[in-house]
Each structure stands twice: as structure tokens, then as C-alpha cells.
């Protein structure tokens, strides 16, 4: 594998977006890019990552390779990332380490790190990325982050309901309750503020607040978030990158007994 990002912060943002949710991950590299899937220890949150060749300045993968890494270690190396530097990932044919080369041609500087790869045995789950959903919402990731931060302070359970009137996020704590209603809007001046809802039926689902706090850490990937809800599947919270691919979080709901 030889894959070069023209801006090293792209890879840093991707890794930082889920490093607190899961401890280790297998990156599966092939001609069609880098894909990964990891599940948190409680098996409630599933992270999917897709970095297609379009995200790279140059991308080459001669034969399919799996790169297992501890995210805490990789995240430490990526602290060196900045918008002035490129980052090339190299993995040899017999992979036992990942080489990260940061280059800042303007400053005549380069940095080289090696990360020992780990053998991770993890189940791959069959996730249909075109999963049918009853409700799809596209909204500002900034707005979503603020709503989650504000409401999750009040309760460890978080409810999302969508009707034709809009999307309602609500919490009911022991001493306080809160509700945020967001209605579809079109902001011609700033498209990232738009909120659109497409739905075939109403939904009313509950989730554990702590996972939503993990999910919003990915908001730096995109100023938009796509939400997909159905009564009988995990919800999908997806951040898509400008150049294709992105990071998705499947979150299993809480149901009444």
C-alpha cells in the first residue's frame, strides 16, 4: 500500500472521529480504497469507515492487505499532522508495520513514524449500506452537536421522533426535561444550515446518551450529518467527506421491555 493524502489532517480527523469509541480496528485495503469496521466493547455502537481513492492525492494498493492498529497509538502519531503537510501511508507486502511519512516541502521538513501492526480478530458484520430506512434527515452537524450536548446533560436516555412537523430531540431526566424541535428549512445564503426530512412513516426511538456524545466527535469531518431511522434497525449517523467516503455510526436503540 502506498497512499498519499495531500493534507495530513484529513486522516487525523478520520481517526480522531472514532478513537474514543473503539480501541482497535482492521483497515482493509484494496484497489477500491480503505474500508474498516469496528464495534465498541458494549457492542452497541458500530463504526464504519470508508476512504476511497478519491480522498488521496495518489493511491496504490497492489494486493489486498489488512492493517490492524491500536487507535490510541495511531492517534498519538497523528498529532504531528497539520494542514501544511502531506501524509503518505506505506505498508510492505508482508505487513508488520505501518510507515507514516509527513512531508512539509515548504519548510523542508519531513517526519517519519513507524507503527507496529497488531493481529486483530474481529467479526465483520454484514451491514447493508443501502439499508432501507423509514426516515432520512440531512442537517447541519454543528446544530446536531449542539443539540446533543445540551440535552444529554439532562438524562442518560435520548429520544428522537420525526413527524411531518419536524424532528424532535428530547430527554426526560429525574429533575429536568428538555425538547428541541427542528423544522425543515432552506438557507440560501448557507446551504450547510439546511434541514431536510424525507419519511415514509413517523418514528420514535430512544438511545443511550453516552453514545451520542461519542458520535458528535466526528462532526469535524463534515458540516452536514445524515440520519437514518427505522423501527427495527440500528440508527445510522453518517458524516460524508467532500471527496467521497466518510464515517458512519450504527447505534442500537433502547426499546421498552
Amino acid at each position: 500500500l502506498e497512499a498519499k493524502f495531500d493534507d495530513s489532517t484529513i486522516f487525523k480527523k478520520i481517526i480522531d472521529s472514532f478513537k474514543d469509541s473503539v480501541t482497535q480496528i482492521n483497515f482493509v485495503c484494496s484497489e477500491s480504497g480503505i474500508e474498516a469496521q469496528a464495534i465498541d466493547d458494549s457492542r452497541v455502537l458500530l463504526v464504519t469507515v470508508s476512504i476511497p481513492p478519491s480522498c488521496f492525492e495518489s493511491y496504490r494498493c497492489d494486493r489486498p492487505t489488512t492493517i490492524g492498529v491500536y487507535l490510541a497509538s495511531l492517534a498519538k502519531l497523528l498529532k504531528s499532522a497539520n494542514t501544511n503537510s502531506s501524509l503518505t501511508l506505506y505498508v510492505a507486502d508482508k505487513p508488520d508495520e505501518l510507515l507514516l511519512l509527513f512531508e512539509e516541502p515548504k519548510n523542508q521538513k519531513s517526519m517519519e513514524y513507524k507503527l507496529k501492526l497488531v493481529d486483530i480478530t474481529a467479526d465483520m458484520l454484514e451491514v447493508d449500506s443501502d439499508m432501507k430506512s423509514d426516515v432520512t434527515v440531512e442537517m447541519s452537524s454543528v446544530e446536531f452537536t449542539k443539540t446533543v450536548r445540551d440535552l444529554t446533560q439532562l438524562s442518560d436516555s435520548f429520544t428522537v421522533s420525526v413527524t411531518k412537523d419536524g424532528i424532535v430531540f428530547s430527554v426526560q431526566g429525574d429533575t429536568a426535561q428538555g425538547k428541541v424541535l427542528l423544522q425543515p428549512r432552506e438557507d440560501l445564503a448557507d446551504e450547510s444550515n439546511n434541514l431536510s426530512i424525507s419519511m415514509s412513516k413517523t418514528i420514535d426511538l430512544s438511545f443511550a446518551s453516552k453514545y451520542l456524545l461519542d458520535i458528535i466527535k466526528a462532526a469535524s469531518i463534515s458540516n452536514k450529518i445524515f440520519l437514518k431511522f427505522s423501527d427495527d434497525t440500528p440508527a445510522l449517523f453518517e458524516f460524508k467527506m467532500e471527496k467521497g467516503g466518510g464515517v458512519g455510526f450504527y447505534l442500537a436503540p433502547k426499546y421498552d421491555d
Binding site: 464495534i39 458494549s42 457492542r43 452497541v44 455502537l45 458500530l46 467479526d123 465483520m124 458484520l125 454484514e126 451491514v127 436516555s157 430512544s206 443511550a208 427495527d232 434497525t233 440500528p234 450504527y250 442500537a252 436503540p253 433502547k254 426499546y255 421498552d256 421491555d257
Partner: peptide, 14 residues
């Protein structure tokens, strides 16, 4: 009271 489901309740292992 609500029960927390897991991802395994919904997705099959490949």
C-alpha cells in the same frame, strides 16, 4: 424501563 439492544441483535456476522 427500556432495554439496550446490541448491534448483534440486528446484524449477522459475515
Amino acid at each position: 424501563e427500556k432495554t439496550q439492544f446490541t448491534i448483534d441483535d440486528f446484524f449477522e456476522i459475515m
